[in-house]
Design a protein around this nucleic acid. Structure first.
Length: 216
DNA sequence: CGTTCGATGCACT
DNA sequence: GTGCATCGAACGT
């Protein structure tokens, strides 16, 4: 069974100003097809990381082995492991040679909810390493892909997808849109530098938006 | 309610 | 050796 691939965003979509790409990704659908099945979610929260001048961007130190994909052609997935625990997925934007990307921070589950639930429950241990509670049934659907680490786990995205074109047969994004009136912008969350740049956007009031932990 | 803090692996200095 | 674009359990009000 092959998933229907309708209106897949082409690489030219990403070859534009990163803030514009971030906003237009809201309402689109990220799809990951694996042998286990298809899981998909609508983007409801994203953050822009733009250039070596952005202290929070991975390109801030200049080109390295880790971040070189940011300098490459737009429309590919940049995945990396942070805190040794969570994978984060970005869409590389802007022309080749200009390092920038959009971090996908939260999705609203669209397809493969049971698969997402199974993936969230697996990997055994809780994050703290303590014994598992028998609570795995309690996660609401809206929370399955809430947060950048959670969504990669729910979709089964790992370093194996690093560098994959976002118009590939296994990983892609389908065009969609969010009502302009529902889009909100504010400071990025979860970072220690570059907090002053209001480069995070989300669908206001959507239950799957993470919003980060510490609001102020 | 609120805030703190441990787990965890890899890139980088 | 240090520091993260995180998460959620475990505390303290």
């Amino acid at each position: 069974m092959v998933a229907a691939r309708k209106a897949v965003l082409p690489s030219s979509f990403y070859d534009r100003a990163t803030l514009l790409v971030a906003q237009e990704l809201l309402g689109s659908t990220l799809v990951h097809a694996t042998p286990d099945g298809v899981a998909a979610g609508m983007v409801v929260e994203a953050e822009a990381y733009i250039g070596e001048d952005d202290p929070a961007c991975h390109a801030a130190p200049g080109p390295t082995r880790r971040n070189h994909l940011l300098y490459g052609p737009p429309g590919v997935a940049y995945v990396y492991l942070n805190y040794g625990i969570h994978y984060l997925v970005n869409a590389v934007t802007e022309a080749e040679g200009k390092p920038a990307a959009v971090l996908i921070r939260a999705l609203a589950p669209v397809r493969g909810v049971e698969l997402m639930r199974a993936r969230r429950a697996e990997a055994g241990r809780s994050v703290t390493g303590r014994a598992l509670r028998a609570n795995s049934a309690a996660v609401p659907d809206a929370d399955l892909c809430r947060g950048p680490g959670n969504l990669t786990k729910a979709l089964g995205i790992t370093l194996a997808q690093n560098g994959t074109a976002l118009s590939s047969n296994t990983l892609w994004i389908e065009r969609g849109s969010a009502p302009a009136a529902s889009v909100a912008w504010g400071p990025r969350v979860g970072i220690r530098v570059g907090v002053e740049r209001p480069w995070r956007c989300w669908i206001d009031g959507h239950p799957s938006v993470s919003g980060g932990r510490r609001q102020l």
